[in-house]
């Protein structure tokens, strides 16, 4: 099946010519997505900004030699950003061998009621607690809304493997965030008992 045309193709051609309006348009279009990807993969705003900035530096170098058709520019940018995220996660692992990380905040009790910001922070912590590949699958499919084929391609796995990572990741989230949903804790515990 022929690939759909790359919606960024014309923009990249203009970026390669140094058209200032195209540079601004590409940043406006991609920066929020890439920043969100890096922020959710790394859980650190400053590191996420560094990753976004580095991804764009590479995009500026890539634009003049970009050949449309092989891959979408958006997918290529995602791949660069993910690689940069994994570089940083590897560095963290090396550091954590020397000093164990702080325990994640358990958060407020379920009956206290949560502000939206606290709830968001809890979800982010739960995401960070997932194995990196499960987190990557959820970030690409849920937040970045990539197709299953594009996400699997980016991750270098089959669609079946992607589905397995997604299911396991979502199940872990449901268990770790069970106290946030009415009746969720009971349901999640039941799932654990039944090994689902």
């Amino acid at each position: 099946m022929p690939r759909a045309p790359d919606p960024d193709e014309d923009l990249i051609r203009r970026v390669a010519r140094g058209d200032p309006a195209a540079v601004q348009a590409l940043v406006a279009r991609k920066l929020p997505r890439l920043l969100a990807l890096a922020r959710r993969m790394l859980g650190d705003p400053a590191e996420a900004e560094d990753v976004a900035q580095e991804t764009f530096l590479r995009a500026w170098k890539q634009a003049p030699g970009w050949i449309p058709g092989a891959a979408r520019f958006d997918t290529w940018m995602h791949r660069v950003a993910l690689n940069l995220c994994y570089d940083r996660l590897r560095q963290r692992r090396e550091v954590s061998m020397a000093e164990p990380p702080d325990r994640a905040d358990e958060g407020p009790a379920p009956d206290r009621g949560l502000e939206a910001a606290q709830l968001g922070a809890q979800v982010d912590r739960a995401l960070q607690a997932l194995p990196a590949r499960q987190r990557e699958a959820i970030v690409l499919c849920h937040y970045q809304e990539l197709s299953n084929i594009d996400a699997a391609d980016l991750m270098g796995v089959s669609v079946e493997a992607l589905e397995s990572l997604l299911s396991r990741g979502r199940r872990s989230l449901r268990i770790s965030l069970a106290q946030l949903a009415p009746g969720g804790a009971k349901s999640a515990r039941g799932d654990e008992r039944h090994g689902r």
């Binding site: 929020p32 959710r40 996420a48 968001g120 979800v123 982010d124 989230l173």
Partner: peptide, 11 residues
């Protein structure tokens, strides 16, 4: 719904 509670980071 839990996943959607994660804030969207603003640049």
């Amino acid at each position: 719904a839990m996943l959607d509670a994660s804030p969207v980071p603003a640049a």
